[in-house]
């Protein structure tokens, strides 16, 4: 009985999702770049999860902080243990809305610029942000990109004074992903 009920729920959820035109990816790419005269630091994650609903304009991203990979092992260790405290705050989130989402037609090839606003949560701290994202359709393949900047201090991330010169106060974040229609199991 329980099994029947739970499969019924899954079917219902799938049906609702179908109608809602949701698109998702589990291999979203998020990279950040810190640039100072002393050193450039870059890290990348290729396993962010994201979903958006074209009908309501809701969009969500989540990423595991530990999935960011650095070139140097020591940097990765400091990033996780000292700055991001990734065992305490394992995930980063963004929840927001795509403005004028009704102007986006994902059934036609083209490029659409849209404002996306919402709440970014990193290191347990939330901040409202608004940025420009680009949704693209090429041969039916849907992708999205968004580049923006954040201040490290906005998220209560403390950088010890010894390395203050090495880490930029403002980080460049680059996001890109392909999206798939959420229509299969």
């Amino acid at each position: 009985m329980k099994k029947i009920l739970s499969s019924l729920v899954i079917v219902l959820v799938l049906v609702i999702n179908l109608q809602a035109q949701k698109y998702f990816s589990k291999t979203g790419e998020i990279s950040f770049h810190s640039s100072t005269p002393i050193e450039d630091i870059e890290a990348i994650s290729n396993s962010a999860s994201t979903v958006f609903d074209l009908e309501s304009g809701k969009i969500q991203w989540s990423v595991l902080i530990k999935s960011f990979e650095f070139e140097k092992a020591l940097m990765q260790e400091h990033f996780n243990e000292n700055y991001m405290e990734s065992s305490k705050y394992p995930k980063g989130f963004f929840k927001g809305m795509i403005k004028d989402h009704e102007n986006i037609d994902l059934t036609k090839d083209g490029s659409y610029t849209a404002q996306v606003n919402g709440t970014l949560e990193i290191h347990g701290k939330s901040k409202q942000i608004e940025n420009t994202a680009i949704f693209m359709v090429e041969n039916g393949l849907i992708s999205a990109t968004c580049d923006f900047k954040i201040f490290v201090a906005d998220f209560d991330i403390e950088i010890p004074s010894v390395v203050k010169q090495n880490i930029a106060k403002e980080l460049e974040i680059k996001i890109k992903t392909n999206y798939e229609l959420l229509d299969k199991s």
Binding site: K26, S47, S49, L64, I65, S67, E69, K91
Partner: peptide, 14 residues
Amino acid sequence: GICTGYLMDVVLVR
């Protein structure tokens, strides 16, 4: 791989 945690899936890198 190295376990980085759980979103909707369990994610392992490298």
